[in-house]
Nucleic acid binder design. Structure first.
Lengths: 146, 146
DNA sequence: TGCGTCATGTCAGGAGTCTGACATAAAGTC
DNA sequence: GACTTTATGTCAGACTCCTGACATGACGCA
Protein backbone atom coordinates (compact mmCIF):
# COMPACT_ATOMS: atom_id res chain seq x y z
CA UNK A 1 0.00 0.00 0.00
CA UNK A 2 1.53 3.26 -1.08
CA UNK A 3 -1.06 5.51 0.52
CA UNK A 4 -4.66 5.21 1.61
CA UNK A 5 -5.54 8.89 1.34
CA UNK A 6 -5.51 11.38 -1.51
CA UNK A 7 -3.58 14.64 -1.39
CA UNK A 8 -4.93 16.74 -4.23
CA UNK A 9 -1.84 18.93 -4.43
CA UNK A 10 0.39 16.03 -5.47
CA UNK A 11 -2.21 13.65 -6.93
CA UNK A 12 -1.28 12.56 -10.43
CA UNK A 13 -4.86 11.49 -11.01
CA UNK A 14 -6.20 14.94 -10.20
CA UNK A 15 -3.56 16.60 -12.39
CA UNK A 16 -4.38 14.16 -15.18
CA UNK A 17 -8.07 14.98 -14.94
CA UNK A 18 -7.33 18.69 -14.88
CA UNK A 19 -5.08 18.49 -17.94
CA UNK A 20 -7.59 16.40 -19.86
CA UNK A 21 -10.38 18.85 -19.02
CA UNK A 22 -8.27 21.81 -20.13
CA UNK A 23 -7.32 20.04 -23.35
CA UNK A 24 -10.94 19.25 -24.10
CA UNK A 25 -11.97 22.86 -23.51
CA UNK A 26 -9.22 24.18 -25.77
CA UNK A 27 -10.01 21.66 -28.49
CA UNK A 28 -13.70 22.49 -28.33
CA UNK A 29 -12.91 26.16 -28.81
CA UNK A 30 -10.53 25.45 -31.69
CA UNK A 31 -13.01 23.17 -33.45
CA UNK A 32 -16.13 25.29 -32.97
CA UNK A 33 -15.47 27.44 -36.07
CA UNK A 34 -15.50 24.22 -38.10
CA UNK A 35 -18.77 23.13 -36.51
CA UNK A 36 -17.13 20.04 -35.01
CA UNK A 37 -16.98 18.79 -31.46
CA UNK A 38 -14.18 16.68 -30.02
CA UNK A 39 -15.96 13.38 -30.61
CA UNK A 40 -16.65 14.18 -34.24
CA UNK A 41 -13.08 15.32 -34.78
CA UNK A 42 -11.68 12.21 -33.09
CA UNK A 43 -13.76 10.08 -35.40
CA UNK A 44 -12.53 11.89 -38.50
CA UNK A 45 -8.90 11.86 -37.35
CA UNK A 46 -8.85 8.12 -36.66
CA UNK A 47 -10.63 7.49 -39.95
CA UNK A 48 -8.03 9.54 -41.75
CA UNK A 49 -5.30 7.32 -40.41
CA UNK A 50 -7.13 4.03 -40.73
CA UNK A 51 -9.72 4.12 -43.52
CA UNK A 52 -12.34 1.40 -43.64
CA UNK A 53 -12.86 0.99 -39.91
CA UNK A 54 -16.22 -0.22 -38.64
CA UNK A 55 -18.35 1.52 -36.03
CA UNK A 56 -17.15 -0.81 -33.29
CA UNK A 57 -13.49 -0.31 -34.21
CA UNK A 58 -13.88 3.46 -34.31
CA UNK A 59 -15.57 3.39 -30.93
CA UNK A 60 -12.68 1.51 -29.36
CA UNK A 61 -10.16 3.88 -30.92
CA UNK A 62 -11.91 6.94 -29.51
CA UNK A 63 -12.79 5.48 -26.10
CA UNK A 64 -16.57 5.62 -26.39
CA UNK A 65 -19.23 2.95 -26.78
CA UNK A 66 -20.21 1.81 -30.25
CA UNK A 67 -23.70 3.17 -29.58
CA UNK A 68 -22.29 6.66 -29.11
CA UNK A 69 -20.10 6.32 -32.15
CA UNK A 70 -23.15 5.21 -34.10
CA UNK A 71 -24.91 8.53 -33.55
CA UNK A 72 -21.71 10.48 -34.24
CA UNK A 73 -21.30 8.63 -37.53
CA UNK A 74 -24.91 9.30 -38.51
CA UNK A 75 -24.39 13.03 -38.04
CA UNK A 76 -21.18 13.09 -40.02
CA UNK A 77 -22.73 10.96 -42.75
CA UNK A 78 -25.71 13.31 -43.00
CA UNK A 79 -23.25 16.14 -43.56
CA UNK A 80 -21.60 14.19 -46.36
CA UNK A 81 -18.27 13.92 -44.58
CA UNK A 82 -18.05 10.16 -44.73
CA UNK A 83 -19.67 7.25 -46.52
CA UNK A 84 -20.61 3.75 -45.56
CA UNK A 85 -22.00 0.93 -47.73
CA UNK A 86 -25.46 -0.33 -46.83
CA UNK A 87 -24.17 -3.88 -46.89
CA UNK A 88 -21.02 -5.87 -47.58
CA UNK A 89 -20.55 -9.16 -49.45
CA UNK A 90 -19.15 -10.88 -46.38
CA UNK A 91 -19.35 -10.18 -42.68
CA UNK A 92 -21.39 -7.64 -40.75
CA UNK A 93 -18.92 -4.82 -40.13
CA UNK A 94 -19.53 -1.85 -42.44
CA UNK A 95 -16.30 -0.12 -43.50
CA UNK A 96 -16.40 3.67 -43.14
CA UNK A 97 -14.42 6.06 -45.35
CA UNK A 98 -13.98 9.80 -45.59
CA UNK A 99 -15.47 11.63 -48.55
CA UNK A 100 -13.44 14.38 -50.27
CA UNK A 101 -15.36 16.91 -48.18
CA UNK A 102 -14.53 14.95 -45.07
CA UNK A 103 -10.87 14.78 -45.96
CA UNK A 104 -10.77 18.51 -46.57
CA UNK A 105 -12.46 19.34 -43.28
CA UNK A 106 -10.18 16.94 -41.44
CA UNK A 107 -7.15 18.71 -42.82
CA UNK A 108 -8.33 22.00 -41.38
CA UNK A 109 -9.43 20.45 -38.08
CA UNK A 110 -6.19 18.57 -37.70
CA UNK A 111 -4.20 21.76 -38.16
CA UNK A 112 -6.30 23.52 -35.52
CA UNK A 113 -5.84 20.68 -33.05
CA UNK A 114 -2.13 20.50 -33.77
CA UNK A 115 -1.89 24.15 -32.77
CA UNK A 116 -3.63 23.41 -29.50
CA UNK A 117 -1.31 20.51 -28.80
CA UNK A 118 1.76 22.58 -29.64
CA UNK A 119 0.51 25.27 -27.28
CA UNK A 120 0.02 22.70 -24.55
CA UNK A 121 3.58 21.42 -24.94
CA UNK A 122 5.31 24.74 -25.48
CA UNK A 123 7.15 24.63 -22.14
CA UNK A 124 8.39 21.06 -22.57
CA UNK A 125 11.54 20.03 -24.39
CA UNK A 126 11.42 17.43 -27.14
CA UNK A 127 12.84 14.87 -24.75
CA UNK A 128 10.30 15.78 -22.08
CA UNK A 129 7.47 15.32 -24.56
CA UNK A 130 8.60 11.84 -25.48
CA UNK A 131 9.02 11.03 -21.81
CA UNK A 132 5.56 12.37 -20.95
CA UNK A 133 4.01 10.37 -23.75
CA UNK A 134 5.72 7.22 -22.51
CA UNK A 135 4.60 7.82 -18.93
CA UNK A 136 0.99 8.33 -20.02
CA UNK A 137 1.05 5.13 -22.04
CA UNK A 138 2.50 3.30 -19.04
CA UNK A 139 -0.29 4.64 -16.81
CA UNK A 140 -2.93 3.59 -19.32
CA UNK A 141 -1.50 0.11 -19.64
CA UNK A 142 -1.31 -0.32 -15.87
CA UNK A 143 -4.96 0.70 -15.51
CA UNK A 144 -6.26 -1.46 -18.35
CA UNK A 145 -4.37 -4.51 -17.16
CA UNK A 146 -5.82 -3.96 -13.70
CA UNK B 1 4.95 25.94 -36.02
CA UNK B 2 5.99 22.59 -34.61
CA UNK B 3 3.73 20.49 -36.80
CA UNK B 4 0.50 20.99 -38.68
CA UNK B 5 -0.60 17.37 -38.69
CA UNK B 6 -1.39 14.89 -35.94
CA UNK B 7 0.37 11.55 -35.65
CA UNK B 8 -1.72 9.53 -33.23
CA UNK B 9 1.12 7.16 -32.34
CA UNK B 10 3.18 9.93 -30.77
CA UNK B 11 0.45 12.45 -29.94
CA UNK B 12 0.60 13.50 -26.30
CA UNK B 13 -2.97 14.75 -26.56
CA UNK B 14 -4.24 11.38 -27.70
CA UNK B 15 -2.28 9.59 -24.97
CA UNK B 16 -3.60 12.07 -22.42
CA UNK B 17 -7.17 11.45 -23.52
CA UNK B 18 -6.62 7.71 -23.44
CA UNK B 19 -5.12 7.81 -19.95
CA UNK B 20 -7.91 10.03 -18.63
CA UNK B 21 -10.55 7.71 -20.11
CA UNK B 22 -8.91 4.67 -18.55
CA UNK B 23 -8.62 6.40 -15.20
CA UNK B 24 -12.27 7.38 -15.29
CA UNK B 25 -13.32 3.83 -16.12
CA UNK B 26 -11.23 2.39 -13.28
CA UNK B 27 -12.49 4.97 -10.81
CA UNK B 28 -16.09 4.33 -11.83
CA UNK B 29 -15.61 0.63 -11.18
CA UNK B 30 -13.93 1.25 -7.82
CA UNK B 31 -16.64 3.66 -6.67
CA UNK B 32 -19.66 1.69 -7.85
CA UNK B 33 -19.83 -0.45 -4.68
CA UNK B 34 -20.17 2.79 -2.70
CA UNK B 35 -22.95 4.03 -5.01
CA UNK B 36 -20.85 7.00 -6.10
CA UNK B 37 -19.81 8.19 -9.53
CA UNK B 38 -16.66 10.15 -10.29
CA UNK B 39 -18.37 13.53 -10.13
CA UNK B 40 -19.89 12.82 -6.76
CA UNK B 41 -16.62 11.51 -5.39
CA UNK B 42 -14.71 14.53 -6.72
CA UNK B 43 -17.17 16.80 -4.97
CA UNK B 44 -16.78 14.97 -1.65
CA UNK B 45 -12.98 14.82 -1.94
CA UNK B 46 -12.61 18.53 -2.60
CA UNK B 47 -15.05 19.30 0.17
CA UNK B 48 -13.05 17.15 2.55
CA UNK B 49 -9.99 19.24 1.85
CA UNK B 50 -11.66 22.61 1.74
CA UNK B 51 -14.85 22.67 3.85
CA UNK B 52 -17.28 25.51 3.33
CA UNK B 53 -16.90 25.88 -0.41
CA UNK B 54 -19.81 27.22 -2.45
CA UNK B 55 -21.35 25.55 -5.50
CA UNK B 56 -19.42 27.79 -7.86
CA UNK B 57 -16.12 27.14 -6.12
CA UNK B 58 -16.71 23.39 -6.09
CA UNK B 59 -17.55 23.50 -9.78
CA UNK B 60 -14.28 25.20 -10.62
CA UNK B 61 -12.33 22.75 -8.49
CA UNK B 62 -13.84 19.76 -10.27
CA UNK B 63 -13.83 21.20 -13.79
CA UNK B 64 -17.55 21.24 -14.43
CA UNK B 65 -20.11 24.03 -14.69
CA UNK B 66 -21.81 25.28 -11.57
CA UNK B 67 -25.10 24.07 -13.02
CA UNK B 68 -23.80 20.51 -13.14
CA UNK B 69 -22.36 20.80 -9.65
CA UNK B 70 -25.72 22.08 -8.49
CA UNK B 71 -27.47 18.83 -9.42
CA UNK B 72 -24.62 16.75 -7.98
CA UNK B 73 -24.91 18.62 -4.69
CA UNK B 74 -28.67 18.14 -4.58
CA UNK B 75 -28.25 14.38 -4.91
CA UNK B 76 -25.59 14.21 -2.20
CA UNK B 77 -27.64 16.45 0.07
CA UNK B 78 -30.71 14.25 -0.38
CA UNK B 79 -28.57 11.31 0.77
CA UNK B 80 -27.54 13.23 3.87
CA UNK B 81 -23.86 13.30 2.92
CA UNK B 82 -23.52 17.06 3.10
CA UNK B 83 -25.37 20.08 4.45
CA UNK B 84 -25.89 23.61 3.27
CA UNK B 85 -27.61 26.51 5.01
CA UNK B 86 -30.71 27.89 3.32
CA UNK B 87 -29.30 31.39 3.65
CA UNK B 88 -26.32 33.25 5.06
CA UNK B 89 -26.16 36.56 6.95
CA UNK B 90 -23.98 38.15 4.30
CA UNK B 91 -23.33 37.39 0.66
CA UNK B 92 -24.96 34.91 -1.68
CA UNK B 93 -22.56 31.96 -1.69
CA UNK B 94 -23.83 29.08 0.46
CA UNK B 95 -21.03 27.21 2.27
CA UNK B 96 -21.24 23.43 1.90
CA UNK B 97 -19.95 20.98 4.53
CA UNK B 98 -19.74 17.22 4.88
CA UNK B 99 -21.96 15.52 7.42
CA UNK B 100 -20.52 12.71 9.57
CA UNK B 101 -22.04 10.23 7.11
CA UNK B 102 -20.41 12.11 4.26
CA UNK B 103 -17.04 12.12 5.98
CA UNK B 104 -17.27 8.39 6.61
CA UNK B 105 -18.20 7.59 3.02
CA UNK B 106 -15.45 9.85 1.75
CA UNK B 107 -12.90 7.94 3.80
CA UNK B 108 -13.88 4.70 2.13
CA UNK B 109 -14.11 6.26 -1.32
CA UNK B 110 -10.77 7.96 -0.96
CA UNK B 111 -9.11 4.68 -0.06
CA UNK B 112 -10.63 3.00 -3.11
CA UNK B 113 -9.47 5.78 -5.41
CA UNK B 114 -6.02 5.79 -3.84
CA UNK B 115 -5.73 2.12 -4.76
CA UNK B 116 -6.63 2.91 -8.35
CA UNK B 117 -4.07 5.70 -8.50
CA UNK B 118 -1.40 3.46 -6.97
CA UNK B 119 -2.21 0.82 -9.56
CA UNK B 120 -1.92 3.39 -12.33
CA UNK B 121 1.52 4.49 -11.13
CA UNK B 122 2.91 1.09 -10.21
CA UNK B 123 5.48 1.06 -13.03
CA UNK B 124 6.77 4.57 -12.31
CA UNK B 125 9.46 5.46 -9.80
CA UNK B 126 8.83 8.06 -7.14
CA UNK B 127 10.90 10.54 -9.11
CA UNK B 128 9.01 9.75 -12.31
CA UNK B 129 5.69 10.36 -10.55
CA UNK B 130 6.77 13.79 -9.38
CA UNK B 131 8.06 14.57 -12.85
CA UNK B 132 4.82 13.39 -14.50
CA UNK B 133 2.78 15.50 -12.11
CA UNK B 134 4.89 18.53 -12.92
CA UNK B 135 4.61 17.97 -16.65
CA UNK B 136 0.82 17.65 -16.44
CA UNK B 137 0.57 20.86 -14.42
CA UNK B 138 2.75 22.59 -17.01
CA UNK B 139 0.50 21.39 -19.83
CA UNK B 140 -2.59 22.58 -18.01
CA UNK B 141 -1.09 25.99 -17.33
CA UNK B 142 -0.03 26.39 -20.93
CA UNK B 143 -3.53 25.56 -22.14
CA UNK B 144 -5.35 27.79 -19.68
CA UNK B 145 -3.09 30.73 -20.36
CA UNK B 146 -3.70 30.27 -24.06
C1' DT C 1 -25.29 -30.30 -39.68
C1' DG C 2 -26.57 -28.16 -35.49
C1' DC C 3 -25.47 -25.41 -31.57
C1' DG C 4 -23.08 -22.15 -28.55
C1' DT C 5 -20.23 -18.18 -28.45
C1' DC C 6 -18.73 -13.90 -29.94
C1' DA C 7 -18.78 -9.50 -32.48
C1' DT C 8 -21.41 -6.21 -34.89
C1' DG C 9 -25.20 -2.76 -36.01
C1' DT C 10 -29.04 -0.61 -34.27
C1' DC C 11 -33.02 0.98 -31.37
C1' DA C 12 -34.94 2.68 -26.95
C1' DG C 13 -34.61 4.80 -22.51
C1' DG C 14 -32.21 7.18 -18.96
C1' DA C 15 -28.39 9.67 -16.58
C1' DG C 16 -25.14 13.43 -16.72
C1' DT C 17 -23.43 17.69 -18.49
C1' DC C 18 -23.78 21.60 -21.18
C1' DT C 19 -25.70 26.33 -22.87
C1' DG C 20 -29.00 29.92 -22.13
C1' DA C 21 -31.54 32.56 -19.09
C1' DC C 22 -33.10 35.02 -14.99
C1' DA C 23 -33.02 36.95 -10.28
C1' DT C 24 -30.21 38.32 -6.49
C1' DA C 25 -26.31 40.22 -3.87
C1' DA C 26 -21.70 42.32 -3.37
C1' DA C 27 -18.34 45.60 -5.07
C1' DG C 28 -16.68 49.22 -7.79
C1' DT C 29 -17.70 53.85 -10.38
C1' DC C 30 -19.57 58.15 -11.38
C1' DG D 1 -27.32 57.75 -3.95
C1' DA D 2 -27.68 55.53 -8.74
C1' DC D 3 -25.54 52.76 -12.04
C1' DT D 4 -22.57 49.14 -13.98
C1' DT D 5 -19.98 45.18 -13.36
C1' DT D 6 -19.19 40.84 -11.41
C1' DA D 7 -20.35 36.61 -9.04
C1' DT D 8 -23.65 33.47 -7.36
C1' DG D 9 -27.78 30.21 -7.13
C1' DT D 10 -31.21 28.23 -9.74
C1' DC D 11 -34.44 26.73 -13.50
C1' DA D 12 -35.31 24.97 -18.21
C1' DG D 13 -34.10 22.79 -22.47
C1' DA D 14 -30.90 20.43 -25.55
C1' DC D 15 -27.15 17.56 -26.40
C1' DT D 16 -23.98 13.78 -25.52
C1' DC D 17 -23.01 9.51 -23.72
C1' DC D 18 -24.25 5.61 -21.30
C1' DT D 19 -26.70 0.96 -20.16
C1' DG D 20 -29.89 -2.46 -21.71
C1' DA D 21 -31.76 -4.98 -25.31
C1' DC D 22 -32.43 -7.38 -29.69
C1' DA D 23 -31.40 -9.31 -34.29
C1' DT D 24 -27.90 -10.73 -37.45
C1' DG D 25 -23.66 -12.80 -39.22
C1' DA D 26 -19.09 -15.33 -38.49
C1' DC D 27 -16.66 -18.84 -36.18
C1' DG D 28 -15.51 -22.98 -33.33
C1' DC D 29 -16.82 -27.46 -31.82
C1' DA D 30 -19.19 -31.73 -31.19
Amino acid sequence: MTQDRIDLDVSVGYALKHAAAALRTSMDAALRPLDLNVSQYSCLEVLGHRPGLSVAELARATFVTRQSMHTVLQGLQDRGLLSRPASVPSGRALPTRLTPDGTHLLTRASAAVAEVEASMLRDLSAAARVRLHGDLVACTSALVEG
